[in-house]
Computed example of a mutant assay.
Amino acid sequence: MPFEETRRYAHCVTPLWRAVIGPRGKDRAPVGCAHVNRPTHSTPTLSLFALPCLHGVERSVDGLLARRRNPTACMAPHADPYLRASTPHGNRLGRLLWSVGYHTLFRFTPRPLHAWRAFVLRLFGARLGRNCHVYPGARIWAPWNLECDDVVGIADGAVIYNAATIRLGSHSVISQEAYLCSATHDIDDPAFPMTSSPITVGRHAWICARATVCPGVTVSEGAVLGLNGVATKDLAPWTVYAGIPARAIKKREQANER
C-alpha cells in the first residue's frame, strides 16, 4: 500500500479503534473512589465483539481507497446499463397481465375455438379482422402491437415478437415456428439498448415454417419466405425467397382472382 494511502487508512481506523477499546492512559476515567490515582499508562484490552467491527471498518476503508484509485470500478449495480429494463414499467405490467390471460384463457383452448382466441386477443388490445385463425400454440409478445386484416392465419409455435407493431395483411399465413422479430439491440452503443422497428406482411404473403423476418422488414404482397429463410431486407411482391440471408429464387404466379 503506498505511503499516502497508508496515512489515510490509519487516520480513518485510529479513532474507531479507540472508540471500540476505550480511552487510554490519562484519558481513562477513574474507577472507584475519587482518591484512586489514575494510572500513568495502561494496555488496551480488545473485546471479542470489537473484532468483527474492526474487520468491517477495514473493508470499508479499503473500499474507499479503491474508489479513489478507480471510480468506475466500484459502480453501484444499478449504474450498469446492462441491468436497466429494456421496456417501461407500464409495458412490463401489461405483459404480466397478458401472461396470466394467455395461460388461463388462450393457450389451452381447443384448436377449433378461433373466435374465442380472437376475442381474448382483442380484449388485450389486438386489432383483428374477421375470420382470423390464431392457433393456441402461437406466442404473441404484446397483443396491443398486433394488427391483422381479414382471414389471417398464425400457426402453432409461431412467435410474434412485436415490441413494435406487426401488421399482417389479409390472407397472409404465418406457419409453424416462424419468427417475426421486431426488436434487436444496438451493438455499437456501450449501453446495448433495445431498438425496435415495425414489420409488415402483405396480402397473400406466406412466411414458411421456421423462417425469420427481421426488424423493419416489409414482406410485400404475395411474397413467400421459404423454410428456414431469414429476411433481412424487404421482399419484392409475388416472389419466392429462400436462404440466409433470403435471396430471390423465382417469381410466383399471380392468379387473376387475387
Rank of each mutant, 00 (worst) to 15 (best):
S182T: 13
I199C: 00
T212E: 07
H171D: 15
P190D: 14
S172P: 06
A205S: 00
A209D: 03
P190L: 12
R203Y: 09
A183K: 04
A164P: 10
A178L: 08
M194I: 10
A191N: 14
E147S: 14
G169M: 06
C208L: 08
I160G: 07
S175V: 06
E177D: 15
I160V: 13
C208K: 04
V151H: 15
A155K: 10
G202V: 12
A163E: 08
I187H: 14
A191F: 10
D189I: 09
D150L: 05
D156V: 02
D188E: 11
N162Y: 06
G202W: 09
L180S: 02
C148P: 08
D149N: 01
A209P: 06
Y161F: 14
A155Y: 12
C148K: 05
D186R: 06
V151A: 15
S170L: 00
A164G: 10
W144I: 00
A205T: 05
V173K: 13
T212D: 02
W144G: 07
P190H: 09
S175P: 13
D156R: 03
E177T: 12
L146C: 15
I199D: 02
V152Q: 09
A158T: 04
T212S: 13
G169F: 07
A209Q: 04
V152K: 08
N162M: 08
A163P: 00
S197E: 13
P193W: 14
P198F: 10
I207M: 10
R203E: 14
D149L: 01
A183V: 09
Y161H: 13
D150E: 01
P193K: 15
H185Q: 09
I160E: 05
T165I: 13
M194E: 15
D189S: 13
T200R: 12
L168N: 11
G202D: 12
D186E: 05
L180I: 04
I174E: 06
A191M: 10
D156Y: 01
F192R: 04
G157Q: 03
A164Q: 10
Q176T: 11
A205G: 00
R167G: 07
C181F: 10
C208W: 02
A211M: 00
D188M: 09
T195H: 05
V152Y: 10
L146W: 15
R203T: 10
I154M: 10
R210T: 05
A205C: 00
A164V: 03
R167A: 08
V173Y: 11
A178Y: 05
C181M: 14
A209W: 00
S182R: 15
A183Q: 11
S170G: 09
R210P: 08
